[in-house]
Amino acid sequence: MKETHIPVIKFRRDKYGDELMVDVVTLDTIRKSKGFQEVLRQSFYGVMLTTGGSGEVEVDGVSCSASKGLVAFARPGDVCTVREDNGLTALELIFERDFLLSFFNDPHFLDSLPYYSHLRPSPYLVLDESLYNKIVGLFVEIQIEIANERDVHLLRALLYEVLVLLQKAFPIETKKPVNAESRVVRFQELVNEHFATETGVDFYADKLCVTPNYLNRIVQRTLGQTTKAYIQSRRIDEAKHLLRYSAMPIGLISDRLHFDTPSYFVRAFTKVTGQTPLQFRNCPEK
């Protein structure tokens, strides 16, 4: 029986007593944690490094066969699941956005990482042996530091090293966003936070202190689609997750995502995906 919603797994900041927003855990412990379901969203960032076994994992709607050396990147809100498991083992480095932002003076650092970008081609990366060993070593260093001194500055530096090494290995170049582009990144963040309730361009333009026309121009230029279409596609993506991973009734999904009526939702969904919501739910592979 599917749940009527996709459960969210939260970060346990108090696991080690004082607040700590970074951790390295095994796939097994994630599975044993409170509220775990086979399909879930993390409320935090994750770098999952497969250490053994094999299986098929899915992050953000993209599935991938996993074996030793595969890294999967999960952003807050990404739907993650292990679809097939043949003794899969993994270490996951998890952290909250604030852990980096409370120190770095670059609020766009995480968004500038290609594997956490909204434009990422894939949430996966396969590591060669030497990088695998390096990353495992850093994970263990983080654990030893957590077990001993728990110095947040050192932990931040280690996390930073992991993220940057993976960025170098990730197969796309990212430019440091220029002004307009960083506005678009902020726009994407805002859409991520508000897409379910705010569907109008004005709301986002207002939040970004720009005119709707200007926002349209920079979004069109950077993302190749209109602001409205981008917001709509984010809503449809969410609808896909809910259709696929939950048993939430279609009328409720329509309400949840603030479509005026269920029939309008069905039309909008069909237009974008070529399938009705019900067809998609029954046969999501297409």
């Binding site: 080690y16 097994d28 412990t29 250490t51 083992t89 042996e129 495992v136």
Partner: peptide, 28 residues
């Protein structure tokens, strides 16, 4: 030497990754 580490501890697996998994479980 990379991840090459043969482990005889009764509850830990081979490799630095095995050590990492054991540390994570103990922490948990």
């Amino acid at each position: 030497d990379g991840n090459n580490y043969i482990q005889h501890n009764v509850s830990i697996a081979d490799g630095l990754d095995g050590l990492g998994a054991a540390l994570a479980e103990m922490a948990e």
